[in-house]
Amino acid sequence: MTIKVLGTGCKKCKELEQNVREAIAQLGINADVQKVEEIPQIMRYGVMSTPALVIDEKVVSAGKLLSVEEIKALLA
């Protein structure tokens, strides 16, 4: 599974990345977490509000700092 955190480097984006790693650790799954900070790449997903979360190339959330629990629900 590939998980991408889209964000230009603001505080919320970093927090989202941490929450994602935490959620993966709790679920004990194998996933590749990437941080995408380049604007053109972010825009390619059609996302206009950051941070956004992409799971296997599908945008599942934009403009929200998801909690660990919310991410676990999305990954399950």
């Binding site: 480097g9 603001c10 505080k11 984006c13 604007i39 972010i42 509000s49 950051t50 403009g63």
Partner: peptide, 17 residues
């Protein structure tokens, strides 16, 4: 509309596009 200043750039590009 929600819009944190860190979204200024993607927002601007999205609108122009």
């Amino acid at each position: 509309s929600p819009f944190c200043s860190c979204s200024t750039v993607p927002l601007f590009i999205g609108f122009v596009e």
